[in-house]
Design a protein around this nucleic acid. Structure first.
Lengths: 348, 348
DNA sequence: CCTGCGATTGGTATCGCTAACATTACTTAT
DNA sequence: ATAAGTAATGTTAGCGATACCAATCGCAGG
């Protein structure tokens, strides 16, 4: 009351968001703010009568909760931070899309950012994400920035590392074994009688999962007493042009090649066009096997034999694990291997 | 002091984020919290000496600002909300990636979500975004949900509508004229002597920009006294298989066709494979023109004539406009037309 | 030596919501 | 009928930052 009467202290005016607040709703509905809050978060603890009155008030005022305020009060936001190497990569785009859809249904928003395969940048991104007090964090793979482990240890929130299972997770992991996928691809080539197998990958120094797949190919060849007939690591992310070019170069390998395993369908597509250009017959002269089962793989000519990673399933499963954890459960197993399927088509 | 001495009122304990706070930093640096805040937001108003002490304290404590608290206090967050039809679409992925990179450099985070070309869903997404008190909003195109206009009017924040310029923007717009792009494509086909032009698009009822491109083709044909020889609107988002299939069907058009304009390179790629399968010569028997200049367009066989939209530039320009606006400027022009370039290759 | 001004720095009151604790109404067990 | 429990709702005090206003400092001008 001193507030209104004391002329020496006029009430301070402060910027407001301008929107209706929870107490506006509460006042209109004739209840207290906390009851509105409860209805919005755990609606089953509010009586049907009040719930109806409150919902009516919300509609009437066009009330939209201020998630900043909620996040501050609860020391926990409704954001899930996601760090992927690149959102332009079709694999991650599909996973993030599925994940976002599932989390959205739970009222969680996805804040995603691309590290561009740069570990220092990943550290920074994670730090930025933590500034939002996220409810959980989703990272890609097991290889992280130098400070990530320390940062996460302090933060203690649910963490899912996705797209890989071959490693020790901070918390939970969903994906498949890339080395095994590479071996599976090589085994297929070997079973077809290929003996001079080339390998073409991109940025294997940074993309540790692609590197694991290529290593899997190499190790399976080794098991058969062979070595890769040729090995190319492209300096840029997979693209059709580089695929064509590096494949063309590989055709000149002394002693020739009878198959090439690619770390990505996009590279294989470039090779496919190059074969056409040069009159190289696939798979008779050279067998080609890709990775990814991207849209075009089933429809190109010849159609592309490839490994199909569980792109959407990784996103869905990540959402499921996070949901369970956020609901208080401690789901086992903490590492879910979804496998990676060989899709045999015409090219190998 | 009653706080510590009154046994009837023990100090309430509250969950905290656990991290160091701004006052922890201030205490360690021997300054007040507001000075830390100022250094972090407008570093030039703090003396060099204090700045050094504060930065040292920040490092020592591993302080990460709580953006929730900041967003609440300022009634404005460092989030930019982005709504695109689908993040799996290579066009939007490229734009969002470029936009996020540029905004990130300004300390702004991108919260993006996919509407799946559903306008009601877009309304919901925008509402959810507003709950975060975003600094700005980025939408796709000019056709929005029924409530969007009202919602935005109340919110009064910078809004960029991207990927189109042919319409009345709420605030700012960056993109190009899709109808003009379609006409340009058709003009090219006509200049090559094509007279029986088919059109293949996908979800034209929802994807209004693709629809505008297709309409542009039709209108340019009309100007030449022609009508489309065939017209297909696929019920699903563009994919290679549907492109091949619908093209195959179109080959059976009574009277034949000598060219097809696609609303997306992906569809054209499918057609390209179909031509190969059937021995149809491109461009001699049928000329094909795509849209998008996706990675493979330059490398497929024959290479694909297509329209190149300014994918990354739209993102960069959006970031630039938003930055200017957030800095208080009122940039003119409010609509930036970046154009869409015809890339002539072998297929047409 | 005092006044006035710009440049720095500090004190305090919120921002809108939720955790923790308190209270009330209403059952059910004894 | 009374105690004891349960369900529904309310009161209070922050969450960690920033906006607004006030105070201090150093120096030029009179």
């Amino acid at each position: 009351m001193a507030r209104d009467s004391d002329p020496a202290k006029p009430p301070r005016t402060r910027r407001r968001a301008g929107r209706a607040t929870m107490s506006d709703v509460a006042k209109l509905a004739g209840v207290s703010a906390i009851t509105v809050s409860r209805l919005l978060r755990e609606s089953d603890t509010v009586s049907a009568e009040l719930a109806a009155r409150i919902r009516d008030a919300i509609d009437r005022l066009g009330y939209v909760p201020n998630l900043m305020a909620g996040g501050l009060a609860a020391a926990k936001s409704r954001i899930v931070g996601v760090v992927v190497p690149s959102i332009r990569n079709a694999f991650f785009a599909a996973t993030v899309d599925a994940l976002a859809a599932k989390l959205d249904a739970r009222g969680l928003a996805v804040l995603d950012s691309s590290s561009d395969y740069d570990l220092d940048r990943e550290d920074k991104l994670i730090e930025t994400m933590l500034a939002w007090n996220p409810a959980a964090l989703v990272l890609t793979g097991f290889v992280h920035g130098p400070r990530t482990a320390a940062i996460l240890a302090r933060a203690s929130l649910p963490v899912v590392e996705m797209w890989d299972v071959a490693g020790r997770p901070f918390d939970m992991a969903v994906g498949f074994d890339h080395h095994a996928a590479g071996r599976r691809a090589a085994r297929h080539l070997l079973s077809r009688g290929c003996r001079r197998v080339g390998v073409i990958g991109a940025i294997l120094g940074k993309d540790t999962r692609a590197a694991a797949r290529c290593a899997g190919v190499r190790d399976e060849l080794d098991r058969a007493g062979l070595v890769p007939a040729a090995w190319t690591d492209l300096p840029r992310a997979s693209n059709v042009g580089d695929g064509a070019e590096s494949f063309a170069a590989m055709l000149g390998t002394p002693g020739g090649i009878d198959a090439v395993a690619f770390s990505n369908d996009v590279l294989a597509l470039g090779a496919l066009f190059e074969c056409r250009r040069r009159g190289v017959r696939v798979p008779d002269d050279v067998a080609l096997i890709g990775f990814g089962d991207l849209d075009f793989a089933a429809h190109c000519l010849p159609s592309l034999t490839t490994m199909r990673p569980p792109r959407e399933t990784i996103g869905n499963e990540t959402a499921r694990m996070l949901s369970a954890r956020l609901d208080g459960a401690s789901p086992e197993p903490r590492v879910v291997d979804l496998g990676c399927e060989l899709i045999v088509r015409e090219s190998a």
